[in-house]
């Protein structure tokens, strides 16, 4: 037991590890903003009428969903310098997260947009709105509500995946915990790191679960959202379940 939970080392490591949190938050917030902005852009391109761009966006999404994030981090940090592009560890981390999670987010946004009944676009277009106006004023405001739960799940995965940046020497939680483990020859620092991850992830997991059960109660059985016939409402919910759920990270992507 002492090997995993030593009071003295616990106190020491706690402070040491908490001090890394600003760095973790910085990467996370920047990565999140970039990944979601990039993902939204990709999804809109993917649903645009420009065939070549659509194809490119699709290829990008497939590629980056198929690559391990760990490989991406290593490539950006250790590989790109050979091509003359040298990024510091932090920027490498943000870029890796944006590239990889941009692809996942794009699929979530696409599913959300497509889950909005076709009738909504038709109604908007019949009023003279352009494709862009229909997206902006009618489709996206509704899609945003649908994508909040899957994006929350994505955030959870992202938090865990910041630990992968320990291999590119970003001074984050796991990196420091491993360092300390070596010094004290004891696993307590790892226990502390685990606790810190959990403090952030568990509340989010609960929130996501709550949103999920609320959605289940509201949508298929209850009154369908206005403007959608009951059948369409159920079809949407199924599409949502099948499509968005399928995109969700089941754990880390590493």
């Amino acid at each position: 037991m002492n090997a995993f939970f030593n009071g003295e080392i616990f106190k020491d490591s706690l402070w040491l590890l908490v001090k890394t949190l600003p760095t973790v938050f910085e990467v996370l917030v920047l990565g999140l903003i970039c990944a979601w902005a990039w993902g939204l852009a990709l999804s809109l391109i993917r649903l645009s009428r420009f065939r070549a761009l659509r194809y490119l966006a699709g290829a990008y999404i497939d590629l980056f969903r198929g690559l391990p994030l760990l490989l991406l981090f290593i490539f950006i940090y250790y590989g790109l310098p050979h091509a003359g592009l040298k990024l510091n560890a932090l920027s490498s981390g943000v870029l890796g997260i944006a590239l990889c999670y941009g692809a996942y987010s794009a699929e979530i946004f696409r599913a959300g947009i497509q889950a909005i009944a076709k009738g909504q676009t038709e109604a908007a277009r019949s009023l003279g709105m352009t494709h862009g106006q229909a997206m902006r004023y009618v489709i996206l405001p509704q899609a945003v509500k649908l994508v909040v739960p899957p994006l929350t799940n994505e955030l959870i995965a992202m938090i865990k995946d910041t630990s992968l940046m320990s291999v590119i020497a970003v001074p984050e939680l796991l990196f420091r915990a491993k360092e300390k483990m070596g010094v004290v020859a004891n696993s307590t620092p790892l226990t502390v790191a685990a606790l810190i991850y959990i403090v952030f992830t568990i509340p989010l997991i609960r929130v996501a679960a709550r949103m999920e059960s609320k959605r289940r109660k509201r949508r298929p059985g209850g009154k369908p959202p206005a403007g959608i016939t009951p059948e369409a409402g159920i079809a949407d919910a199924q599409l949502y379940d099948a499509d968005i759920a399928a995109q969700l990270p089941k754990g880390g992507y590493g």
Binding site: Q120, Q142, G227
Partner: peptide, 12 residues
Amino acid sequence: GMVFQSFNLFPH
């Protein structure tokens, strides 16, 4: 102007 069978009001 066009009106549809399924109303298609903007629910938000």
